[in-house]
């Protein structure tokens, strides 16, 4: 399998209706480290993830994968997965949802069943395999979305506020799942509102404010000594709220 990392964002920008929402993002993200994207509401965190994942096309600059190697778009596409704030599950059983993703990833029909059950099992969902996905609880649905992502063995996993709608127990389960991905070598790029979660999970932080990348630092450095006034205010504000 071709490695698609590092990810290099080259003067990346995005404007809608003439209004710039993201601009001048220059950053290089290496394999391994868990990258947490932080910033106030409207800073462009989700937008950044969508641009990286290829769901939106940048209006400025480039998203480069593979450190200068020319990679075919579908090689890049197949090596990524994304988990959204609200899991989008199909009206079929939990196992069938995973099998569907495997089919789209090109896995032969015969192997899908076992691969799907394996993924469900890993996230504690094996007993729910035959249940309709849409009747699962919010936490179970998000774990199913993670299992679906797991099944396709991505090199990079994007997570956009994956626990924003979940209770503490379900949040913990999602965080454990993220650790599982990390330990298996998947690059994590995740946005969150929850600073505690960021502290628990982050190896490095991208801090966005008003569509610009203000800080890119290791987690330790960012939380102890934020260099920008925006980040200091953000951390202070979040702590008192």
């Amino acid at each position: 399998m071709r490695g698609i990392l590092p990810l290099h964002l080259d003067h990346l920008g995005f404007a809608a209706h003439g209004r710039p929402l993201l601009q001048g993002i220059n950053v290089r993200l290496e394999a391994g480290a868990r990258t947490i994207v932080l910033g106030p509401n409207g800073a462009g965190k989700s937008l950044l993830l969508r641009l990286c994942h290829g769901l939106l096309a940048p209006t400025e600059g480039k998203v480069n994968w593979g450190g200068g190697d020319m990679l075919a778009p579908d090689v890049v596409g197949r090596a990524q997965a994304m988990v959204f704030q609200r899991p989008v599950l199909l009206r079929r059983s939990a196992a069938a949802n995973v099998r569907h993703a495997l089919a789209l990833a090109g896995m032969p029909w015969r192997s899908r069943r076992d691969a799907a059950l394996d993924a469900l099992d890993r996230f504690g969902l094996a007993h729910l395999a035959r249940r309709p996905a849409r009747v699962l609880s919010g936490g179970e649905q998000q774990r199913l979305a993670l299992a679906r992502a797991w099944a396709v063995r991505p090199q990079v996993l994007f997570l956009d506020e994956p626990t924003a709608a979940l209770d503490p127990a379900a949040t913990l389960a999602v965080e454990l799942a993220v650790q599982e991905f990390h330990q298996s070598g998947t690059k994590i790029i995740m946005t969150t509102h929850d600073l505690g979660q960021a502290r628990r999970l982050a190896d490095e932080v991208l801090f966005l404010s008003r569509g610009r990348l203000v800080e890119h630092a290791s987690a330790q450095a960012f939380f102890k000594h934020p260099t920008s006034p925006q980040a200091r205010a953000f951390l202070a504000g979040e702590l008192v709220s």
Binding site: M82, L90, A101, L104
Partner: peptide, 22 residues
């Protein structure tokens, strides 16, 4: 479903079949 299906790299005919079935 659009974003999710594009995230899963579904081709247009796969999108059509998935949505018709759902």
């Amino acid at each position: 479903y659009g974003e999710q299906l594009r995230s899963l790299n579904a081709r247009p005919w796969q999108v059509a079949l998935t949505l018709l079935w759902d």
